[in-house]
């Protein structure tokens, strides 16, 4: 019985705090994306006018924890299959945050655009039993500024 109460409290805490964190994170992401719209990012490998530019490696990484509620819903989803919407929003946040941090680094180095950007994801605590787990997204690319 106490197990069940403990579980429900965890679920409620996970939902309340997880959703609050997610909402405010998305607000912050949208706000900062507007501010950094001047920094352009491309996955294109070949940089136009390469010989007139200076390139540096920039990267941004973020680690976001799964909350208890998301993990439980995803666990149920894994029984029946389908889109794991609980994790979709989590990864969306992580990707956009990583690109934003990379853009901020590019801004500090005085670059106007980042080329050849790549995204890497890693699951932290992968395979560890009874742990909540977290996801890391790393964005990196070549920031260029006029020579």
């Amino acid at each position: 019985m106490y197990d069940l109460i403990f579980f429900l409290v965890l679920l409620l805490l996970g939902y309340v705090f997880g959703q609050r964190a997610e909402k405010s994170h998305f607000r912050s992401i949208i706000e900062r994306e507007k501010q950094l719209r001047d920094i352009l990012v491309f996955s294109e490998r070949r940089i136009p006018d390469e010989d007139k530019l200076d390139g540096t490696l920039v990267c941004g990484s973020v680690v976001i924890s799964v909350d208890f509620f998301k993990r439980f819903v995803a666990g149920l989803r894994s029984l029946v299959g389908g889109r794991v919407s609980a994790y979709e929003s989590l990864l969306e946040r992580a990707r956009r945050e990583a690109i934003l941090r990379m853009k901020e680094e590019a801004l500090r180095s005085g670059a106007k655009s980042v080329w050849n950007i790549r995204l890497e994801t890693a699951s932290i605590y992968k395979g560890a039993q009874q742990s909540i787990g977290a996801v890391e997204v790393l964005a990196y690319g070549t920031a260029v500024k006029p020579r």
């Binding site: 136009p48 998301k70 609980a86 969306e92």
Partner: peptide, 22 residues
């Protein structure tokens, strides 16, 4: 010719409410 267009929100996330899903 290179630009970053403003993309609409919600492309990569299913629009279901988490509680409904649950």
């Amino acid at each position: 010719e290179y630009e970053n267009p403003q993309l609409p929100e919600g492309i990569n996330v299913s629009p279901t409410h988490p509680l409904k899903d649950f």
